[in-house]
């Protein structure tokens, strides 16, 4: 019997072995190597790569000299705090709508999943550049002008950002809608009927049953949104890292340091977001 168990153990390992191998070669090793590079000054010469240990020099440079980087990180964080909740709430609303018994459901779904295809590529950039993704003629409205006249206030800034980018934000919610919708369709119909018999209104049903049962999916979507928002190739920080990679005076070492700082920021943002969600959850149920 024990031999059989060992056998299963080995077969399991055999199945996952491509991944383990790939992880070591293409992820773990590059990860460590880039950590190593981030402490070096890297020069590419004709005989290969020459490194020169500079301790935390690259990291200090990023925060003290490179103003663009700090600037961009701050705007990135600010925009993320605003956009991510909107994306989550919006995709949840869409998923709820699509889950109703409606006519042309297939057609609507086809339209609402379009962002999955378009928003991850350069086409969206082309569309943003052409100004198709802003609310048409918004500049003419009084509210916009009033906001534009004093853009310094905190809330004014947020509102302005929202008005300018609302549609782009909506474009980033394709996969999230998909995940919510799949979860909604898995929900047991009997619970709904039982609640109906007990006299629950739709409103109560949503807040007391649908939403709590979607909590895990909300966390999944939160992680997904933050990650895709961060690694999206049009993200200004990523452009900055790429620019530094091929610059002569900064080079690979500095770019590695930047990407590590960025990585740590993303990880911190993720753990804060997930932490907030789970803490709330515990309070509610104990």
């Amino acid at each position: 019997m024990k031999r059989l168990g060992n056998n299963r153990n080995l077969t399991g390992l055999l199945f996952v072995s491509p991944w383990i191998l790939g992880f070591l070669i293409f992820t773990a090793f590059p990860l460590l190597y880039s950590l190593f590079l981030s402490f070096q000054e890297v020069k590419i010469t004709t005989d290969g790569i020459k490194t020169n240990f500079v301790s935390f020099g690259n990291y200090e440079y990023a925060f003290s000299v490179d103003g663009t980087f700090v600037d961009r990180v701050l705007t990135y964080l600010e925009e993320m705090v605003i956009s991510v909740p909107i994306i989550i709430v919006f995709s949840l609303i869409i998923a709820l709508l699509l889950n109703q018994k409606i006519k042309f459901r297939g057609l609507f779904r086809t339209i609402f999943f379009l962002p999955v295809i378009i928003a991850s590529g350069p086409v969206i950039k082309e569309l943003i550049d052409q100004g198709i993704t802003t609310i048409p003629s918004i500049e003419q409205y009084a509210i916009y002008q009033a906001l534009n006249d004093n853009p310094d206030g905190f809330f004014n800034g947020i509102l302005l950002y929202l008005i300018k980018n609302l549609i782009v934000i909506l474009w980033y919610s394709g996969v999230q809608i998909l995940i919510f919708l799949a979860a909604l369709q898995k929900m047991d119909k009997q619970i709904f009927e039982a609640a109906k018999i007990d006299g629950a209104s739709n409103w109560e049903f949503f807040w007391k049953i649908t939403l709590p049962s979607l909590k895990p999916m909300i966390i999944v979507n939160l992680i997904y949104t933050i990650v895709t928002y961060s690694v999206f190739s049009l993200n200004p920080i990523i452009e900055h890292i790429q620019k530094n990679m091929f610059k002569v005076d900064t080079g690979y070492g500095y770019a590695s340091a930047l990407s590590w700082i960025y990585f740590l920021i993303i990880a911190a943002a993720l753990s804060i977001a997930v932490g907030v969600m789970t803490v709330k959850r515990k309070k509610k149920y104990t």
Partner: peptide, 25 residues
């Protein structure tokens, strides 16, 4: 198999690593 849980965590971790970190190496 042994280390399955660790592997699971690592699989998830590969998702949040920005491609830029491993890009240069």
């Amino acid at each position: 198999f042994r280390g399955k849980k660790i592997m699971f965590v690592l699989v998830l971790a590969t998702f949040i690593i920005p491609p830029q970190v491993t890009l240069i190496p």
